[in-house]
């Protein structure tokens, strides 16, 4: 009986760890810094925007995994490509879903931080 409870606790903890680690804080510092650089370039090179932009990327990183972030970044970049090869990124339901999920997460993060 006792063993079973302990097993359950272990299972629960493992599951919890898995869930959390899949979504939080797996963004490399370089990628966060890159976001902040671009965000400040767009909005302002000041202490205030350093705080707002850092807050935004931290919020995003809490909501999605780095792999998901890279997916969205890739689709957005491919959409800037010319010609037939961009079509799959601009028109497919698959890529639209990636972008709409990402947009809702970033706008939540911006509301939170700006």
């Amino acid at each position: 009986m006792r063993k079973k409870i302990r097993n359950n606790i272990i299972t629960f903890t493992l599951l919890h760890l898995l869930l959390v680690s899949a979504y939080a804080n797996d963004f490399p510092t370089q990628s966060r810094a890159e976001f902040v650089f671009a965000c400040m370039a767009a909005n302002g090179q000041s202490q205030a925007y350093l705080a707002k932009c850092s807050c935004t990327i931290d919020e995003i990183a809490e909501q999605i995994s780095y792999a998901e972030y890279v997916d969205a970044e890739t689709v957005l970049r491919m959409r800037l490509m010319r010609g037939e090869r961009a079509a799959i990124f601009t028109e497919s339901a698959w890529s639209n879903e990636i972008i709409s999920n990402f947009n809702s997460i970033t706008s939540d993060a911006e509301l939170e931080c700006f």
Binding site: F35, N43, L76, L80
Partner: peptide, 9 residues
Amino acid sequence: GGWAGIGMA
């Protein structure tokens, strides 16, 4: 293509 534009916030 260019820069993905993430971070324009």
